[in-house]
């Protein structure tokens, strides 16, 4: 068992488990974000404040951070090791058909990481440590996260562009990541491989389509 953590399959196992965990998180994240589309933002504010203040989330937050950190560290480590496995490359680079995303997961991951830093600085950090205006909802003082999000999406079109490009990188990452995670934990066979690929595409389209739709909605709604 001690060897497991250093073995190639063991390391991939952690990539897979953390990846699956992060994919679950994306579902929760999008569900809450979708509240941005309804009403005047009260609903979203209530949900966002609930997420940032209830005790369960206080426990889940560091676990989530750990999920991200492990996923990133293992990825960097494995990628470096894999590069060393071919000290001298080919003159003619491979003509073998394999999806572009599958061959560039680390590049995509790095791009998503850059987006993540911008994203955290813009939202998470401000809510957690910055000064976000407050509003009174049903006698309670809540952070006006809605105003923060809507303000960015409406006022800064180039922010929407960054956001949507980030989501596209995420989409590509997920199209390979989803079924790949199942393959790595061995939950796959001849029959399930095409099924998991299809489910992965559906998942990626829903998640990324959803995330990309929200800034577009704000842009279009307030453009006129």
């Amino acid at each position: 068992m001690t060897k497991f953590f250093t073995s190639s399959i063991g390391q991939k196992f952690f990539m897979s488990i953390t990846g699956l965990f992060l994919m679950l998180f994306l579902i929760v994240h999008l569900t809450i974000n979708s509240l941005l589309l309804f009403g005047d933002g009260t609903l979203f504010n209530q949900a966002a404040n609930f997420m940032s203040s209830n005790p369960v989330m206080k426990v889940i937050e560091p676990i989530l951070a750990l999920g991200f950190i492990l996923h990133i560290i293992y990825a960097a480590y494995i990628t470096l090791k894999n590069m060393k496995a071919r000290p001298k490359g080919y003159k003619i680079t491979t003509k073998t058909k394999a999806s572009w995303a599958s061959k560039n997961m680390f590049v995509l991951g790095t791009l998503i990481f850059i987006f993540l830093v911008i994203h955290l600085a813009n939202f998470f950090w401000k809510v957690k440590f910055g000064t976000v205006e407050t509003v009174m909802v049903e006698g309670k003082e809540l952070h006006d996260v809605y105003a923060l999000v809507a303000g960015l999406f409406k006022g800064w079109w180039w922010y929407d562009v960054i956001y949507i490009v980030g989501v596209i990188f995420l989409f590509l990452h997920l199209t390979h990541g989803f079924w790949s995670a199942f393959q790595t934990i061995g939950w796959d066979n001849e029959k399930w491989m095409p099924r998991l690929k299809v489910i992965g595409y559906i998942y990626s389209i829903i998640i990324c389509g959803g995330f990309a739709f929200i800034p577009l909605y704000f842009l279009i709604k307030y453009a006129v």
Partner: peptide, 21 residues
């Protein structure tokens, strides 16, 4: 698997290039 790792082969990232060739 331990031997494979020890001899310097990389780890699988599920690109599927192997099965094509």
């Amino acid at each position: 698997v331990a031997k494979m790792d020890e001899l310097g082969f990389g780890s699988c990232t599920n690109t599927g290039a192997c099965e094509v060739e």
